[in-house]
Design a binder for these strands. Structure first.
Length: 411
RNA sequence: GCCCCGUUCGUCUAGCGGUCCAGGACGCGACAUUCUCAAUGUCGAGAUCAUGGGUUCGAUUCCCAUACGGGGUACCA
């Protein structure tokens, strides 16, 4: 049976690359009817950040890629690591120095494996390897050690992790060998780079998945875009739901080159998802997204809400765009000239229109525009209060005559 | 420096020896639609497949070298 694990260290916020690793783990497990576990590698006492784990769980919960079973904390398993470390010492494969336990790396050996990303053979020579610490002087294990011990104890079959671990894989291989344990398959994922071709970091803007949520991205889009960075199902397929990704996921379609995060394409994908969910669903998500915003919440709970959501959907890239789209307040004040035009327009419309039905209104606007030689854009602004956005007729349907007229009257 | 990995349009990528004078998507441009902006549809520009050597009847696809990019080189993960 396939069993994988996501093993982050709670030393900071998980950036998008970290969560992508979780996603690939999840996809692979689901695809193969396997298990997906979560292990917190909290072995670095100095760099530990206590909010990190909660944030991580919140991300997984939001994205609905939650692990199975109990969460393992390495900090609670110190006695286990100690026991195994001593075993290596007694086998004379490790030694104590400066209060820490070190593994002696054999110079004559070579270490090789076939990495499942790109299905390539990787080989390191023992002479390039250095002895390394497995148990620190504070009695905590190092990553290399705790990771191997736990992967063995939990019978992990496939290790998905960032490619920054390739160089230390020889250490891990040697540990498996020293204990006589069967080693797992390795799947080293290329790291995601920013637009300047350097590793994603704070400088590149919002990096946490939670940040994307608060910026109005849909979880479907986040999942979809993360999956697409470095993996594709082959062919032209781009938009995929989680279930579809599970169905299509294959390790040999993971790329081994570093992808660059493209904010613009991500936004486009988010728009695609916003347009593809139902109006009712979108409305619910907007209600949740704007739960702290009284004004928008009021709008969203009004009877006009479904219509507004519907006409706003095609104009949104993120949920954040909704507010300005449906706001009733004018985008800017009218100029003196515009105030004059607005007065004229108001008189014109109130005198000529009987029903205020769309066709009649549109004709009147066109006529006014022509007769007075006023550009349509100006009329649009005067009637809607916006330079651009939801159409006059759409607003006429939703808010009606009074709203349009009041825009002509205000400043 | 040394070790490891990578390199197809600006970006994400398809391609796994002939189907490729390289296909799709984002972005960009044009047109259509049209009450603005979007959305949508159609078309277009954009890659001598990093460079140089091989192998082969034939290389984007296989091998080597160079260049460039990324990663590692901690009692951090």
């Amino acid at each position: 049976m396939v069993r994988v694990r996501f093993a982050p260290s709670p030393t900071g916020i998980q950036h998008i690359g970290g969560i992508r690793t979780a996603l690939y783990n999840y996809l692979f497990a689901k695809k193969n009817q396997g298990e997906f576990l979560l292990r917190i590698e909290d072995t670095d006492q100095k760099r530990l950040i206590k909010e990190a784990e909660g944030a991580l769980l919140e991300m997984l919960r939001w994205l609905e890629i939650e692990p199975k079973g109990n969460i393992v904390h390495q900090s609670k398993r110190l006695d286990i690591y100690k026991k195994y470390a001593k075993e290596l010492v007694s086998k004379e494969l490790a030694y104590e120095k400066d209060g820490a336990i070190w593994v002696k790396m054999p110079e004559s050996k070579s270490f090789e494996w076939t990495d499942l990303v790109g299905n390539k053979h990787i080989r390191f020579e023992g002479k390039d390897q250095k002895d390394f610490v497995i148990l620190k002087s504070d009695e905590f294990p190092t990553y290399h050690f705790a990771n191997v011990v736990d992967d063995h104890l939990f019978e992990i079959t496939h290790v998905f992790r960032g490619e920054e671990w390739i160089s230390s894989t020889p250490k891990h291989l040697y540990l498996y060998e020293s204990f006589g344990w069967k080693r797992p398959e390795f799947v080293h994922l290329p790291v995601i780079l920013g637009s300047d071709h350097t590793k994603l970091s704070k400088r590149h803007g919002a990096k946490s998945v939670l940040d994307y949520r608060s910026q109005g991205y849909l979880k479907e889009a986040v999942l979809n875009y993360m999956a697409l960075l470095g993996w594709n199902p082959g062919g032209d397929r781009e938009k995929m739901s989680l279930d579809e990704m599970i169905e299509l996921f294959k390790i040999d379609h993971i790329n081994s080159a570093n992808p660059i995060f493209d904010q613009t394409k991500f936004e486009w994908l988010n728009g695609v998802w916003i347009r593809s969910i139902s109006t009712k669903d979108l409305q619910e998500r907007l209600i949740e997204f704007y739960s702290d915003d009284k004004e928008v919440t009021e709008t969203l709970k009004s009877s006009k809400s479904p219509d507004l959501v519907k006409v706003a959907a095609s104009r949104m890239k993120t949920l954040m765009d909704f507010k300005s789209l449906v706001s009733k307040t004018s985008q800017r004040e009218k100029t003196r000239e515009e105030i004059k035009i607005a007065k004229k327009l108001k008189t014109f419309l109130t005198q000529n229109l009987k029903t205020w039905e769309d066709a009649e209104l549109l004709n009147a606007i066109k006529e006014f525009s022509k007769e007075e030689d006023i550009p349509f854009k100006t009329i649009f602004f005067l009637l809607t209060g916006k330079e651009q956005g939801i159409g006059i007729l759409e607003l006429n349907q939703i808010y009606g005559k009074d709203f349009l007229i009041s825009n002509l009257e205000g400043k």
